[in-house]
Amino acid sequence: MTIPTISIRNLHKSFADNEVLKGIDLEAHQGDVISILGASGSGKSTLLRCVNLLETPTSGHILINGELIKMKDDKKHGPMPVSIKQVERIRSRLAMVFQGFNLWSHLSVIENVIEAPIHVLGVPRKEAIVKAEALLERVGLFNRKDYYPGQLSGGQKQRVAIARALAVEPEVMLFDEPTSALDPELVGDVLSVMRDLAEEGRTMLVVTHEMAFARDVSSKVIFLHEGLVEEEGKPELIFENPTSERFKKFISTVY
């Protein structure tokens, strides 16, 4: 057995009195593309944001490549990581693509892509630029490299965001509803880039509403309902023969 790239055990997360995640287990091995589905409020974004500790879990364990993120229960601040250094190091190996893009608006396209490699990973500037240019070429935006995010369309921004994510050579890519903020005609470009990434064997966790992507591209689908995994399995199985009534209803309404 290989060590799972991501292993989440009995994860709980509450916001004040509201328990959003009620004990989630999840394992992702190298090359897995896991789509996380669920109605809004089901906790799917929160789950993804717990993986890189943008949200601090209330309890449970997260292991990245077998390395446990050490947590403690602080008297004053509640649960928090033991070492922020460890968290920062782990974050630098996980790349996130956000629903709202979150490109750094004061930096040009190419500067956005080289920022983390240079200033977090310590890659020499020249090397970072060469690689960034290749990545922008790949997402079809090399000719926009000196533009600022404000001058791009949503679809272009999200493709730059994907290039920024690839630039850190992440072990896992976390996608938080990457196409939800896009106009329908721009969704296709972004999805096709993501499809390519899946095919080349990248490990991806994708929170999405795109049923076609979940069904055709992912190696596993997880359906969350009120903070628990309601249904999971290979997409060809669970889309054909859903065991949960809720999931059956969910796919029939979304389609």
Partner: peptide, 13 residues
Amino acid sequence: KGQLEAATAYGMN
């Protein structure tokens, strides 16, 4: 908030 969140997510201190 997203600007800083992206910086956090990419491991900046």
